[in-house]
Design a protein around this nucleic acid. Structure first.
Lengths: 251, 251
DNA sequence: CGCTATTTTGACCGATTTCAAGTGATGTGG
DNA sequence: CCACATCACTTGAAATCGGTCAAAATAGCG
């Protein structure tokens, strides 16, 4: 059930080409989408020749860096990827955290260069998709094209979540609820989360001071909304936490 | 030279189908992109059968509303479109302003519904593109597909601009510099801007109180960075204004 | 067991918001 | 043409949330 267990069963480097391999990429969104649209095995094989299973990346290793030439997007198969930029004075600005099943690199398409850095927060496994090849294939597979459009469009809306002027409590609640939902969608527990990022990363992402994150978490714990122990967090009262997050998440 | 003059010369309702018509849509990004990639006139005609010139929308008229079924994206030909959402308590949250040449509706693709409202701030003319038809056409025209990917990808990065924790002055400067650049790219003056939105809209967009916008603008004027008279704004010192905006815009 | 990085806690400070009032444009009906 | 209403905008004073600074507690690790 754990992503770790699943990861171990993977052949390490490039894609295998037997039928079984397809299942391993089920978290990649693309196979799912295509399978459900009645594409034949031949098309799926086409899709799979442009996939590379890469990794493991260890904590602190970079997947790509700002300014590097863009040639591929990637789906996270296991672990957490943090994307960030550095401002003029070298301070980090966290753009997002990417969990298993999610895609990184989409924002690089427009400039043909990665506009941000991507680093592994723990042991990360990826499916790498050559974007040029994928675009060509998409002209033959309308379902794939639609999926790409959909993925891109989704990311447009996501970014504006943390943009509002919300209180520290609302931001934090929204962050936790969103994490919970994203994990739940991939079959992980919705109530017990392992925070793979530091408080500083969370603070940075939510545009708060680390001290504030600490205080808010304490407050949420005192109010019996969550229970926190270091990086382990249990959501005790999902309903009230979601209510707090409602203004940010909008549903 | 003014957008008003250009607008007058347009045939009012649906697309004409003679060669001249192509030029009218030159602000729509798609024609430009395709022309520059060696597509034949036949392809461009295909592109143009799925275009409708619609408008005028008058100040306050809605182009689409949140929850409505998505079927088309649109390029602004003239005027300004504001996109926004309403939170639970009915307060408006401005997502963006769309100037001539820019595309609205891209964030609706993933859900097949518009996730926000779009309203005209002045007299607005649009090119409406049926998205389903466009997607089909894109499978035959890789250049069109690439252009769509690019447009979508661009919008992902844009939203995170105002997400940082910047000072009111930096936000305001960034807003003005960005406006200036976007107007300049379309052939308008880079130093003399007509603010088509209210102070409240600007405040709402920048996540500031309207009072703060007023005070910041006053400060910028006292510092001789800009000259403001009601909705007319002149950038007096582009270099210093850009320096202020640098942290936000990143270049 | 020290060493270091992360996290927590407390006290204070400051930018921005909020509240409240006032000014100025624009438009309307008398 | 003017009194009046309305809306956008400005200005000032007080309140506040979150940031900053400083220091202590806690965990991770060789």
């Amino acid at each position: 059930m754990s992503p770790t267990a699943r990861r171990r069963s993977l052949p390490s480097p490039a894609a295998a080409d037997d039928g079984d391999e397809l299942r391993f990429c089920s978290t990649c969104a693309f196979s799912d989408a295509c399978l459900s649209q009645g594409y034949g095995k031949a098309d799926l094989m086409d899709l799979h020749v442009l996939v590379e299973h890469i990794g493991p990346f260890h904590e602190g290793e970079h997947i790509f860096r700002e300014g590097e030439e863009f040639n591929a997007i990637a789906a996270v198969r296991a672990g957490t990827v943090k994307t960030y930029v550095l401002d003029a004075s070298g301070h980090e600005q966290v753009l997002g955290f990417h969990l298993p099943g999610e895609i990184i690199g989409l924002s690089a398409i427009s400039q043909a260069r990665y506009p941000c850095n991507a680093v592994a927060l723990d042991t990360v496994m990826l499916c790498r998709f050559s974007f040029p090849k994928m675009a060509v294939l998409a002209t033959r597979m309308p379902g794939l094209q639609a999926q790409l459009f959909k993925l891109l469009s989704e990311d447009i809306g996501k970014a504006s979540l943390l943009a509002g002027d919300f209180s520290a409590d609302e931001r934090m609640a929204a962050f936790l609820v969103a994490l919970s939902r994203r994990y739940a969608r991939r079959g992980f527990s919705a109530t017990r989360l392992h925070l793979t990022m530091t408080r500083t990363d969370i603070a940075n992402y939510l545009r708060l001071a680390p001290e504030t994150v600490s205080r808010v978490l304490k407050r949420l714990q005192e109010d019996k909304l969550v229970r926190v122990d270091r990086r382990e967090l249990e959501i005790l009262d999902p309903a009230r936490l979601e209510a707090l997050a409602l203004h940010v998440l909008r549903h």
